[in-house]
Amino acid sequence: MRIGVPKEIKIHEYRVGMTPPAVREAVHHGHEVLVQKGAGFGIGLFDEQYVAAGARIADTAAEIFAAADMIVKVKEPQTAEWKMLREGQILFTYLHLAPDPEQARGLLDSGCVAIAYETVTDSRGGLPLLAPMSEVAGRMSIQAGAHCLEIAQGGRGMLLGGVPGVPAAKVVILGGGVSGTNAARMAMGLEAHVTVIDLNLHRLYELDMQFGPSLNTIYSTVDAIEESVLGADLVIGAVLVPGAAAPKLVTEDMVKRMKKGSVLVDIAIDQGGCFATSHATTHADPTYVMHDVVHYCVANMPGAVARTSTFALNNATLPFTLALADKGYKEALLGNPHLMAGLNIHKGQLTYKAVSDALGVDYRDAKTVLAA
């Protein structure tokens, strides 16, 4: 199979779909890899390294999209990219379609086969291709939130961990999954006062056993969220419904009643955000203030630490990339129900129910579509 790796074009996105070691592995499996010139330059992965790994360098994205059987990316395709996709071409990347009807329509119209990293599952019910970036985003959320609490950023002028004789900041984390757990670990390491709120009692038990009395765990109700958010200095939104739009757990009324200069960091913004006042921002302009509350809602947070993120992501995606290339997408998907869960769009048909529910677009079962 001919695999294409274009340079990411989303603003301040320096990650790349395949590293030189991943390319070498694909070439070792007998595949051809085309990498766009300068695709990894921003994180110190140079064209010479890709050539040494066996890749062929293409000058433009148009060359990549025209020649490749499968496109391997990081971020969802931008408008210029989805217009270059063709019928039957495989797209393997993050999609986050639920809050993005325009992209969904573009991919449906292209006739491509779109497989989303964020909905591929594993035998334990986890999301193995989302987990590495969730780890990064969770850890980053605390350093971003701590920075936003500084007075020059519009924050309350608080040091997250306080100092002897002065109380630490109160950090509330909505969601105890991968992102939330990593956020809690970082916040506790900085000696903040940390509370995690989640609907899953078993998960709260696991967190309690993992972190002990230093972490407060609370079962999620409207009352619990409201009380905790109103008392918080920093709130991390780390909720996830796989493939679906994030639930709006914090209302605009709650935001209005929060303390002046408090901070919201919305990790769930890729799926539409879990704060009613959230809208996506960029690394170039990461924050805005609404109702005297600082909002950090960068839609590709791990892109800020692009080298770490790229290698972590490649470790997770490479086995699936090779399976798609070695077997062809139909055999690979039909032979692996966890990879099958990643199929969101197949030749003009939407095949992921949570996206269908969010967008109001007709849905067809992935297995049925592939078997036809």
Rank of each mutant, 00 (worst) to 15 (best):
M1N: 04
I3V: 15
P6K: 06
P6N: 10
K10I: 07
I11H: 13
V23M: 06
E25P: 00
L34P: 01
A39D: 07
G40F: 02
F41D: 12
I43D: 02
G44D: 12
G44I: 06
E48R: 14
I64S: 13
A68C: 05
M70H: 00
E76T: 01
P77C: 03
K83E: 15
M84K: 14
L85I: 07
L91M: 10
Y94E: 02
P99V: 12
E102K: 12
A104R: 08
A104Y: 03
L108N: 13
D109H: 13
D109G: 01
V113S: 02
A131C: 03
P132S: 07
P132L: 04
P132F: 03
V136Q: 12
A137R: 06
M140H: 07
I142W: 09
L149C: 04
E150D: 13
I151W: 06
A152N: 13
Q153P: 00
M158L: 15
A168G: 01
K170A: 06
T195V: 13
R203L: 00
Y205N: 10
E206F: 10
N216P: 00
S220P: 02
V222C: 01
I225G: 10
D233W: 08
D233K: 00
D233E: 14
V235G: 09
I236N: 01
I236T: 04
V239H: 09
A246G: 01
K248C: 02
V250H: 10
T251C: 10
M254W: 02
K260V: 11
L264C: 15
D266Y: 07
I267S: 08
G272T: 09
C274P: 00
C274N: 07
H279Q: 14
A284E: 14
A284D: 14
D285F: 12
M301N: 08
P302I: 00
V305H: 05
V305Q: 03
R307L: 06
R307G: 04
R307N: 06
T308A: 11
T310Y: 07
N314W: 06
T317C: 06
K327C: 13
Y329E: 04
L333Y: 05
N336Y: 00
G348M: 11
Q349K: 15
T351N: 13
T351K: 10
V355I: 14
V355H: 03
S356T: 11
L359H: 07
V361G: 01
Y363L: 09
A366K: 04
L370M: 07
A371H: 05
